[in-house]
Simulated scan of single mutants.
Amino acid sequence: MTSAAEWQKARFAALDPLLPPPPPLPRGELVEAGGATGTIAHVRFAAGSWQRLWSPAQLQILSAVLPRDARAGMSALLSAWRERVALADAEPDSSCSVTWPSRDVEVARTLLDHGLAPQLALAVRAPAKGEAYSVPGVTVRKSSGGDLEEIVALRFEELRYTSFVGHGVVRPGAEALLAEEIRRGSQFGGRIWLAEEEGVTVGMVTSGKRSPVPGDALAGRLPPGEWGYLGTLAVTAAARGRGIGRALTAAAHDELFSPSLRGTFVSYNPANPLSPVFWHRQGYRPLWTTWAASPAAALR
């Protein structure tokens, strides 16, 4: 008899050739229903931590193995999860989430029906050099140690915008946390590209390279090998719509490219009115979508 794990492996392979084989369920609270099995990981981020800028303080993260009837299995699992959430004393600053292949529209329908909404997409692009692109009067260059103040200002503007349309949270001390993260990224080989107009910084994008390894956030999300990534892309409100973002990403893509590169990836919020259309035009397409809801509204 074919197991649910084997059905899911075959389902993922048929949905998208870039999906790696599903890894074993992570540790967590076990939940079973309708032939589906899941684990719920309970995560709490410390007050004043970097993670709280991009997440609620407390998370419940569902991982699932679904049977052949994936829609029914996910529906049963979400109903069982709802009972667990109803019994828990959930905090207002919390969220329930599940990450699932973007092309699995049948399961997406079930997630919508249970009150979850798409919050984050992990999108991928085939390896390619950046197509040269320039904007008259705008210079694109790598950042230096003297650019921290300008970079923090752009990152904070992007965080504030994201707080209206997605998962960003403007918390006390945000600028200091952003500055610390920028320094840490530079120490670990990350790059920051800046766009300047008449000596004023009007845009930025972060970039680097990563390889999925067991236990990290990319394990089970991307095939093995070296991947480039683009992180925060921010352009000042007054400078948007002129191709500055395109010029920044072209420079980053060109530097990241190598014959051994598997591809590049980005994360964006599907509800953001600017991000999806921009990234799709740069050759990216969603691979995974994270669905989420607050406990009060979730899993109806």
Rank of each mutant, 00 (worst) to 15 (best):
S3R: 10
A5R: 10
A5T: 08
W7M: 03
Q8F: 04
A10E: 15
A13E: 12
D16V: 03
P17V: 10
L18F: 13
P21S: 08
P26Y: 11
V31L: 14
V31P: 04
E32D: 10
E32H: 12
G34Y: 06
G35N: 05
T39E: 00
V43G: 02
A46Y: 05
G48N: 10
S49K: 11
R52K: 09
L53E: 05
W54C: 00
S55K: 07
S55R: 07
Q58R: 15
I61Y: 05
L66S: 07
L66R: 02
R68W: 00
R68V: 01
A70V: 03
A72H: 10
A76P: 04
S79G: 13
A80I: 03
L87G: 14
D89H: 15
S94G: 07
S94K: 08
T99D: 01
W100M: 02
S102R: 01
V105M: 08
E106N: 13
E106G: 14
H114P: 00
H114E: 04
A121L: 04
L122N: 00
A132Q: 13
A132T: 13
S134T: 15
S134D: 11
P136W: 13
R141G: 09
K142Y: 11
S144G: 15
G146F: 10
G146E: 13
D147V: 03
E149Q: 14
E150N: 13
E150W: 06
V152A: 08
V152R: 04
A153C: 08
E158P: 02
S163Y: 14
G166F: 05
G168E: 08
V170E: 12
P172K: 15
A174V: 05
A176M: 11
E180T: 09
I182F: 04
I182C: 02
R184P: 00
S186W: 13
G190Q: 08
R191Y: 01
I192Q: 01
L194E: 02
A195E: 02
E196W: 09
E197L: 06
E197G: 02
T201C: 12
M204F: 11
M204E: 08
M204R: 04
S207A: 15
R210W: 05
S211F: 04
P212D: 09
P214G: 08
G215P: 00
D216W: 09
L218M: 15
A219H: 13
R221N: 01
L222F: 03
E226Q: 12
W227M: 01
G228V: 03
G228N: 02
Y229N: 01
T232W: 06
T236W: 10
G241W: 14
R242G: 04
I244D: 04
A252Y: 06
H253D: 10
P259H: 15
G263R: 06
G263W: 03
N272K: 08
P273C: 11
L274Y: 15
L274R: 11
L274Q: 11
P276D: 08
F278W: 14
W279C: 01
H280F: 13
G283C: 06
G283K: 06
G283E: 09
Y284T: 05
P286G: 06
L287Y: 03
T289I: 12
T290Q: 08
T290R: 03
A292C: 10
A297K: 15
A297E: 15
R300G: 14
R300Y: 12
R300C: 13
